[in-house]
Amino acid sequence: MEAKVANDWRLRGQRYRLEGERCGHCGAAIFPPRDICPECGKPAKTPAPLSGRGEVYTFSTVYNAPEGFEPYTPYTVALVKLEEGPVVTAQLTDVAPKDVQIGMPVEMVTRRLRTHGEEGTIVYGYKFRPRVGA
């Protein structure tokens, strides 16, 4: 697959730092950005950071990866329910598949998602891992 430089670039706020939106009408946290609040249906275009803290809602360890992700198998993907409410699809990292459990507290980190071959760009984005420290 060709490196989609502009596509990746457009998503840098979301991917690098999990930037969502906050609805000015009902206060809902929104991720990914939709510009229309999924809770109250009103316009919601104010960018807002999310804490990156959440817990595993469900997970799966992938043995057959799509093109571009094969170098990383086996890796675990999950739905992570963020403290603020939204659910995010993301990889888990720094954890062995056998140690993953539903309900496990996790935090967001920025990691390499993939590269576009040897010469193309390196794509970075959010993943989640078991919380470190306090």
Binding site: V109, T110, R111, L113, Y124
Partner: peptide, 13 residues
Amino acid sequence: AGLDEDTITIAIE
């Protein structure tokens, strides 16, 4: 470093 880590990811954290 793990498979998804490099100088940039280390620097960010």
